Computed example of a mutant assay.
Amino acid sequence: MERKTLTVQEVAEYLGVHRDTIYAMVRQKQIPHFRIRRRILFSREAIDAWIREQESTIVAM
């Protein structure tokens, strides 16, 4: 069964950015995430939807 959640490191690799960038985006509420106790997790579906949203915002400009 495939996991539906990603860690900070996995999202950073998926997006091609540094892990610190993801932490900064989480602090500024710029990327969809959720917490389980102290762990920050991301839904794979939410990240893919967020990417599509970001792409459509760029195209609209």
Rank of each mutant, 00 (worst) to 15 (best):
T5L: 07
V8Y: 03
R19H: 09
K4E: 15
E2F: 07
R37D: 15
V11A: 07
A60F: 04
F34P: 03
Q54C: 10
L41Q: 11
F42E: 09
F42T: 08
R19W: 00
R27F: 08
I36R: 08
Q54R: 15
R38P: 00
E55L: 15
Q9I: 09
T57K: 15
T5V: 13
A24F: 06
M61Y: 10
E2A: 10
R3M: 08
Q30S: 08
E2W: 02
A24Y: 10
I22W: 02
A12Y: 01
Q54W: 02
Q9R: 12
D20I: 08
Y23S: 10
H18L: 03
I40W: 02
H33W: 03
S56A: 14
F34C: 09
G16I: 05
P32V: 10
M25Q: 13
S56N: 12
A24M: 13
Y23D: 10
V17Q: 03
Q9K: 13
W50M: 03
E45F: 02
Q9H: 05
V59A: 14
W50A: 05
V8T: 15
L15S: 05
A24L: 13
Y23H: 14
Q30V: 00
S43K: 00
Q28M: 13
R3K: 14
I31N: 07
D48T: 07
A12G: 11
V17F: 06
M25K: 14
M25C: 05
V11Y: 02
V17K: 07
I40E: 08
R19D: 03
A24W: 09
I58F: 12
I47Q: 04
A24C: 05
K4T: 12
Q9G: 09
R38Q: 10
L6A: 14
E13A: 12
R37P: 00
T57C: 09
R35H: 02
T21D: 06
V17Y: 05
V59C: 00
V11T: 12
H18Q: 12
R38W: 00
M1L: 07
F34G: 06
L6Q: 05
A24H: 12
L15K: 03
F34I: 04
V26S: 10
T5E: 14
G16E: 07
E13I: 00
D48V: 02
A60P: 00
V59H: 07
E13P: 00
S43E: 13
F34V: 06
Q28H: 11
V59T: 11
R35L: 04
D20S: 14
M61E: 13
E10G: 01
L6I: 02
V26E: 10
G16H: 04
T5C: 06
E10R: 03
F34Y: 15
E55I: 14
T57A: 14
T7L: 07
E55T: 03
E10Q: 15
I47M: 07
A12S: 02
I58R: 15
M61R: 13
R35D: 01
I51D: 08
V59M: 11
R3G: 04
V11I: 05
R52S: 11
E2C: 01
H33F: 15
I36T: 11
R27G: 08
I51T: 03
L41F: 03
A49F: 04
R38D: 11
S56G: 00
V11S: 06
M61I: 11
P32E: 05
I36N: 06
L6E: 09
M25L: 14
F42I: 08
A46P: 04
F42N: 10
Y23C: 06
I31E: 09
E13W: 00
I51R: 11
W50D: 05
